[in-house]
């Protein structure tokens, strides 16, 4: 039996035996369990008056949702990446920098890739996101999906890295004399897209935490 299973079993038995939560916490603390482990073990059982311990709903993992959220977050990542790439190409086209070599056909080619990616992945993300919102409204228990939480936090992680990288690039450009209008616009695009994702999924993560 794993230590976490032993802890869960002990907590259930102790609650079933009528011990108070404070007594259980004290006993576990004395035995060397960490406060967060104790809190998690106690939180697994609802603090209500009932003859036997009543379990709280717990996060779950489902293969179907892993597929669903996997597609959705890949679609989001592709949409964000190619939206940034396309907007950068548009900025290159509209804001001239006399010190830059004209990239001609390669810029057109990358613009076409980004358009193709957006035509495929942006509607995919929007449709799946809409389905998620509707499914969550119909069944708030879906917020407890472990897969959804993981993908949400991975997205937050990537958005945070993008924002920090963006800040680093701005400072580097400032120090290297490349802080042109073109560069500032590009940095704003990255910050805008990453910031939007960050805001949106931080709210999602908050809701998921509330739902757990």
């Amino acid at each position: 039996m794993r230590p976490s299973d032993q802890l869960a079993e002990f907590t259930r038995d102790a609650l079933a035996a009528g011990k108070s939560r404070d007594d259980i916490r004290a006993a576990l603390t004395q035995s060397g369990w960490a406060p967060n482990e104790i809190a998690e073990a106690l939180d697994a059982w609802a603090d209500i008056s009932f003859p036997t311990p009543v379990p709280r709903p717990r996060p779950y993992v489902s293969a179907r949702e892993a597929f669903f959220y996997g597609i959705m977050f890949v679609a989001l990542a592709m949409t964000a990446w190619h939206l940034v790439a396309l907007l950068h190409n548009l900025i290159d086209h509209w804001v001239a920098d006399p010190l830059d070599e004209y990239s001609g056909r390669s810029a057109l080619s990358s613009t076409r890739w980004s358009i193709a990616a957006l035509i495929v992945f942006a509607p995919t993300f929007l449709v799946l996101n809409r389905r998620t919102v509707q499914a969550t409204k119909a069944d708030p228990g879906k917020r407890r999906s472990g897969v959804r939480k993981w993908f949400g936090y991975v997205t937050l992680f990537l958005a945070s890295i993008s924002l920090l990288g963006d800040l680093m690039a701005v400072i580097y450009a400032l120090l290297s004399g490349d802080l042109t209008l073109r560069f500032i616009l590009k940095a704003l695009v990255v910050a805008g897209v990453a910031g939007a994702i960050f805001t949106y999924f931080r709210q999602e993560a908050d809701e998921a935490r509330d739902g757990a």
């Binding site: 939206l83 190409n89 548009l90 613009t111 076409r112 980004s114 358009i115 957006l118 929007l126 996101n129």
Partner: peptide, 26 residues
């Protein structure tokens, strides 16, 4: 509400970007 507004904004930005991209690529 946010759930309805965010996808509309994302969709609008994407459509505008694609349209602008097509004017460049032709």
């Amino acid at each position: 509400e946010r759930d309805a507004l965010a996808p509309v904004i994302i969709g609008a930005v994407v459509v505008l970007a694609i349209a602008a991209g097509l004017t460049i690529t032709g």
